[in-house]
Design a protein around this nucleic acid. Structure first.
Lengths: 184, 184
DNA sequence: CCAAATAGTTAGATTATCTAACTATGACTA
DNA sequence: TAGTCATAGTTAGATAATCTAACTATTTGG
């Protein structure tokens, strides 16, 4: 909980946010019903973990010159390649972002030659987006790291813990899906 | 796993990223050792949860016109108020961000009257940052929501599950702390 | 045939970061 | 004490990932 002081931070990367300590301290001062304390404490850890897990992935992907959002898009294209024609609108739907954001992402990926755009002949408003061989090569290169980073999140859990955690995770998944799903 | 299609997304808020489904599909196509599959799958869920947990908190804080980063800073100031003089450098250290970023955050908070800056008399290079009564009022107003959002993350877990999850969380906490701690 | 819907882009904004360079100021040393 | 070095904070300028609103084609349906 205590931050190491001393040596100056020289990182050239994004660093995670405030630890949990200060929050716990504040919670103890705040009038919170005793029964809730444990849940809150666990929620705080989950929040902290969330920040830092994303950070770990960011850092691991960085050497490949790609971010999670962009990898998401490439994977999506890879998955549909050959099978279906993918349009920016469809991508926006799938990724849950706006069409304008997709345009920006595609511009970036296209500039690097990882995706290509082609106007549809049937409906000239539409664009077909495809991953290029270079894009595919990049993904092939990144995936092993991606998988191993995913798996490494559980490194310190033993077999028994993994077993129970699996069930808990799936409950949490559903639970959060319900929450974020509201209003859509 | 499957996205609801149909109704157009009309949200005026940030939406979470690609679900897990596409990743699982890709994993199955990729040459991954069978033993790892389960860990990877769980890691993927953790990644998804991370994105979405932060999102839930963002959404819950939004009505107060504040974000987690800014709340972090206010809480830090609140905690030290009266006890210690807090400088931007110290804040940067505590939050793990650069001094320049602290300047930006403070500018924003100061503009709204939630913090104040005052030059130190003893060392005129230094600035003392304080939370204002208005800032304190804001925090008092936000905290109940913050706590309840934290606690609500565990809503769907029963007593038994919470008990085991607590241990798992603390292991994960340590484990990730070790990872992000490397190189600092 | 024309109005309305749809697809994609552009323009401009926000949030949260970063690095590098700059301005004071203080501290130590020759 | 003058000169150099270190420290504190800010500024300037960049990037990433988003958003909204307005715009341009193009298609569709009455």
């Amino acid at each position: 909980m205590e931050r190491k002081t001393g040596k100056e931070c020289t990182a050239d990367q994004q660093l995670p946010a405030l630890g949990i300590g200060p929050y716990l301290e504040l919670m103890d001062k705040t009038a919170v019903q005793d029964a809730d304390r444990k849940s809150i404490r666990m929620g705080l850890v989950m929040l902290w973990l969330s920040d830092n897990i994303l950070d770990v992935m960011d850092v691991d992907l960085a050497p490949f010159g790609i971010t999670e959002s962009k990898l998401d898009m490439l994977l999506l294209l890879m998955l549909h390649d050959g099978r279906e024609l993918v349009t920016p609108s469809a991508i926006a739907d799938r990724l849950g972002i706006r069409r304008a954001s997709v345009t920006a992402l595609l511009d970036w990926l296209e500039k690097r030659g990882w995706v290509s755009r082609e106007q549809s002949a049937r409906d000239r408003r539409m664009i077909h987006v495809r991953i290029t061989p270079e894009g595919r090569a990049l993904v092939d290169q990144v995936l092993p790291t991606f998988w191993s980073t995913c798996a490494s999140l559980l490194d310190d859990l033993d077999a028994e813990e993994r077993k129970v955690f699996e069930k808990i995770l799936s409950k949490l998944h559903q639970s959060i899906e319900k929450k974020v799903g509201v209003g859509r």
